[in-house]
Nucleic acid binder design. Structure first.
Length: 236
DNA sequence: CCAGACGTTGTT
DNA sequence: GTCTGG
DNA sequence: CCAGACGTTGTT
DNA sequence: GTCTGG
């Protein structure tokens, strides 16, 4: 599955990765920049996702990780919705409306998996050998809070989830499930809502993991603060 | 996903 | 909002 | 009918 | 052990 990930990228590289223009950034600059160098993104924290705007152009928006369905009365429901199974996402009440109309791509430089052997847990950092960013398939949702304007929380909350699939031969030594990672062509097809539920497995299949490596790391990375872990190369 | 709390009364 | 379990 | 869940992974 | 917060 995918319960933690990192993102290390410049604004310019992120925009070129998805073909986004300056007008396609839906965030104040301060919040946007704070999302660009994150070593350990945890559920309920914000990260940038790419989705289609009103004119079907790519847009980058920081959203909260853990999809909060539009009917939710409590933000905490999102903590259980950090992943969605690709096999069932079209039917599940919490995800199906987002599957129809609100797909997104979640940029990442790497993600973490914990291999269990009895009560031992060994964390791994999985990333491309050149450490370049990639995109995970996701869904997003808009929650309109119907309360008075008296809270700290904004009236509208955007959130997202990351799709998972059965592990392939690369991931199976570490974990039974893995995030759905899409290469350039498949990513565009996914973002454009051109994938039927029945064709989802075929979209996932072609992704090549030959450029990825799984690196065992020390457990110091297990905190959700944004401290630089020694397992990740510093930014150049 | 992991890390950290997990409780009450009453005081400042 | 919509489905499931009782 | 109402009340309560709405999710995933992995472990025994 | 289990729940909550991040």
């Amino acid at each position: 599955m995918c319960g933690r990930f990192n993102l290390r990228i410049t604004a310019a590289d992120l925009k070129s990765l998805f073909g986004t223009t300056e007008q396609g950034i839906r965030s104040n600059p301060q919040e946007f920049d704070s999302c660009l160098t994150r070593f350990n993104i945890a559920p309920t924290q914000k990260s940038i996702v790419c989705h289609l705007g009103e004119s079907d152009t790519p847009v980058l928006t920081p959203m909260r990780w853990g999809l909060i369905p539009s009917w939710a009365k409590d933000l905490r429901i999102g903590a259980k919705m950090i992943n969605a199974r690709s096999e069932t996402v079209a039917e599940k009440p919490s995800f199906r409306s987002a599957f129809k109309r609100r797909r997104c791509l979640v940029p990442a430089s790497g993600f973490y998996e914990w291999k269990r052997s009895g009560k031992e847990k060994q964390p791994f950092h999985i990333h491309q050998t050149d450490d370049s960013p990639f995109a995970m398939a996701g869904l997003w949702e808009l929650l309109k809070q119907s309360g008075g304007p008296d809270r700290d929380e904004p009236a509208e909350i955007l959130s997202f989830t990351i799709l998972t699939a059965a592990a392939n031969s690369f991931m199976s030594p570490i974990h039974d499930r893995m995030p759905v990672i899409l290469s350039g062509e498949s990513a565009a097809v996914w973002l454009d809502h051109e994938v039927e539920a029945s064709a989802l497995s075929e979209l996932i299949q072609p992704f090549e993991w030959e450029n990825f490596e799984a690196v065992p790391i020390s457990s110091t990375v297990n905190n959700a603060r944004n401290e630089t872990p020694e397992c990740l190369a510093p930014l150049s």
